[in-house]
Amino acid sequence: MQPAAEKGLIPVTILTGFLGAGKTTLLNRILTEQHGEKIAVIENEFGESGVDNDILVQDKEEQIIEMNNGCLCCTVRGDLVRILKDLRRKKRGGEVKFDRVIIETTGLANPGPVAQTFFMDEDVHKDYLLDAIITVVDAKHGQQTLDEHDEARAQVGFADRILLSKTDLVAEDETKALMDRLRSMNPRAHQKKVHFGEAPISEILDIRGFNLNAILEVSPEFLTSDHHEHDDDVKSFVWKDPRPLNMEKIETFLSLMVQNYGENLLRYKGVLNVKDEPKKMIFQGVHMLMGGTPGKPWEEGETRESVMVFIGKGIPRKLFEEGLAYCVA
């Protein structure tokens, strides 16, 4: 179980999305806009799908390049953990100044291993706070990309926020169909249309999607819509139950499920109504890593209800639902 995030940590945003989705356009805007933020951007590829060459000077020996607006850009030629520790050391020593980090993954990357870095390495976990995973989806080619590429589906499954680019190039009904599909794959990710990367910084940073005490948001449309058009391997389901749960049973059951299906569980999160517990119990996980902590007290008159969201590949929904029902006190 991971402890709740403490103050003083450096927030990190993971920016992902398939090749050509518009990650670089968004990143270039962040790197050049006068937003007053000191951001260290970790780029893990250069060239056509990396940051534009007219912005970055490609010096093979240079690892950290400072932008004219105070942002930093780092090239990753090795382990992400080493880069993060190096940045932290230079920040402490006054060599570089930054307040937060954005990591841009390659278009073909599954963001899961990057996210796990912030929980598995003790030094990284001690210094950094994983804020959120932002996924950019190309409205023009999104359906085809999701049909053909596992990585694109995984990127959607991991997302805390989905930015839809190029919506001006397709009809409104096509965009709606894509948004419905994305919602069926990941009902907890807020969706927003963006034009040429023009997304307010406030909608990309400090989302706290990985904060255990953050509110669990599930799209209301997900619970009322029918989603049968696409047989995606990345699927999601929401489990709700007003009956109080037995804490020991729920811990045992979830541990067993993570042990057996963790590799296929992309994201899972819940607010639990535990018997004789005045506070909400919050839990979430990525693959095999699961964390839990007491949240805010249940307010007087508030409906006590457990709400859990599971997003994964080929997860046995019936088994999960039957097991969770067994955990009722």
Rank of each mutant, 00 (worst) to 15 (best):
N273D: 06
D59P: 00
A325P: 00
I30M: 11
Q63R: 14
L31D: 09
V328H: 07
K176P: 00
K296C: 02
Q144W: 05
A159E: 08
L108W: 03
S255L: 06
L19T: 10
E151M: 06
S202N: 12
L19S: 10
I42F: 01
P113S: 12
V51C: 02
E305V: 15
F158L: 11
G94L: 05
V194E: 14
L265N: 03
E151R: 01
E322R: 13
E305A: 08
R317I: 08
P297Y: 03
K60E: 15
V41H: 05
L245M: 14
D226L: 07
H287T: 10
G8F: 07
M179R: 07
G47V: 01
L56F: 12
C74L: 15
H228M: 03
K192D: 11
N68E: 15
E37Y: 11
K176W: 04
D276P: 05
N213E: 12
L324G: 04
I42K: 02
A115V: 07
M247N: 08
A214S: 11
G20M: 04
P297G: 05
T75A: 15
D121K: 06
T106G: 05
D99L: 00
D147P: 00
G36Q: 07
I207Q: 14
A325T: 12
I83F: 05
L223S: 13
R183P: 00
K97I: 02
I215P: 00
E104M: 03
V274Q: 07
E43K: 02
G107W: 11
I42Y: 00
I133V: 15
G314D: 12
H141F: 05
V194D: 08
L319N: 05
I162T: 10
Y261Q: 04
L265E: 02
L256P: 01
T16E: 12
P113Y: 02
G17A: 10
V218G: 03
M288W: 12
R82H: 12
T135A: 13
S202P: 03
L272A: 12
E221G: 02
D168F: 03
S219V: 00
K249Q: 12
G291R: 12
D52W: 02
H190N: 08
K313G: 05
F98W: 02
A329C: 13
I102H: 08
G301A: 10
I311P: 11
D147M: 09
L31C: 06
R153E: 14
F18D: 04
E66A: 14
M290F: 11
A109K: 03
